[in-house]
Design a protein around this nucleic acid. Structure first.
Lengths: 221, 221
DNA sequence: CCTACCGATCGGTAGG
DNA sequence: CCTACCGATCGGTAGG
């Protein structure tokens, strides 16, 4: 048998195609998420412009340049915070509405009022509950997005807002709401969103108290 | 007659005491006010952190270092914007309430509802009417004050808010409001303050429309 | 993801 | 109030 031609020695064989993730690579998604979480908290507490990418890196345990390995720009980080916030919010809202339909109470009569209560309670949880940095950042920092990013976020926000309209419409038809439905929705959202500015759980009121007060304020007897 | 001793020639006689203001000096207050106005508009449009003192100087027709002749720091300028906003707002509110008392309608019955309408309408004017940059800046940028400045602004804000409570209390006693008075006031303020985020006069609704919608939403029949 | 760095910008000041 | 400037900070990048 002739000596085989020398072939370039291949590196130790590795499986073809997409490599199985090593431990470090599997971490990658987590590191990215840690950055988003750190950014959400800092943007919420200090505002976007007053937060440096160095602050965020430090909070995620990285060096100053490292966020830019995961995100093209500071504004992309802000965008990621908002998208994550709206995604989670939409999911929670959908779950709340589903629970409502399957809880067995006779739909027709109680429905719109119970639905509004569920929507409001969910909104308070998103705005003020544990881990609630993402949506407040969206509410108070959307000016800092590029206009292209802003358009995308606005679309997600409209999807989140959509389920409120038929509920308010139904309440209006039963005389429990007098105002124009669209203006009412905007005013109600303002009342809820503004709680981010003043609500302090240490002062005694709970999110349920807040929900009761809101229902009493908006829904007529 | 002996020659008089030479006396140092005095500069052209000027009146004693506080000098009459020259044109340039009379301008000084105006220049300061121009800075505050320019700052209010820019802080409102871009946010405090995203506005540079150079932006403000340029808008007031000055060089980059000149704002610091009038204000010790950027944060002092912000503080001046807020104090001016609250001062003007308090004055307008007081006028609105006075007009109410002297318009001749029999007080007892209509009073609380008419009073709430006047308060809301005034608030919309302050937030959305012509020249309405100052109070929105206060609402959305108070975090950027030093804690000492914040305490002063908070005190003025409490004075502005005070007249709302007895009005809401009276409405509650006549059954036109069901919610707790203090929570109701906070929720109502949120609904009004949030209009800064979405109200667009070009979309057809007027401040009177907004006032009607708010009254219909909050005041039960 | 770190190291080392750049270019730009910013609040603020001295001196007139 | 302008001129001229400083020191610090910041978003972002090259190269490994």
């Amino acid at each position: 048998m002739p000596a085989r031609r020398a072939v370039p020695v291949a590196a130790p064989r590795r499986p073809r195609g997409r490599p199985r993730k090593t431990l470090a690579e599997r971490d990658e998604g987590n590191r990215r998420q840690e950055l988003v979480r750190a950014a959400a908290r800092l943007f919420h507490r200090q505002g976007f412009a007053a937060t440096t990418t160095r602050d965020i890196a430090a909070k995620a345990g990285m060096q100053s340049g490292s966020p830019f390995y995961h995100f093209k720009s500071k504004s992309d980080l802000l965008h990621a915070v908002m998208e994550e916030g709206l995604r989670a919010a939409g999911q929670r809202q959908a779950e709340a509405l589903l629970t409502l339909q399957s809880d067995g109470t006779s739909a027709a009569a109680v429905a719109p009022e119970a639905a509004l209560r569920a929507l409001i309670r969910t909104q308070f949880d998103i705005l003020l509950g544990p881990g609630s940095d993402f949506v407040p950042v969206m509410l108070y920092e959307w000016r800092s997005l590029t206009s292209r990013q802003r358009a995308g976020v606005a679309k997600l926000a409209r999807e989140y807002e959509a389920p409120w309209v038929p509920v308010l419409q139904a309440l209006r038809e039963t005389g429990r709401l007098r105002a124009d439905v669209h203006l009412a929705r905007l005013l109600i959202f303002g009342a809820l969103n503004w709680t981010v500015q003043w609500f302090d759980p240490k002062k005694g009121a709970t999110l349920d108290d807040l929900t009761d007060a809101a229902m009493e304020l908006f829904v007529h007897r």
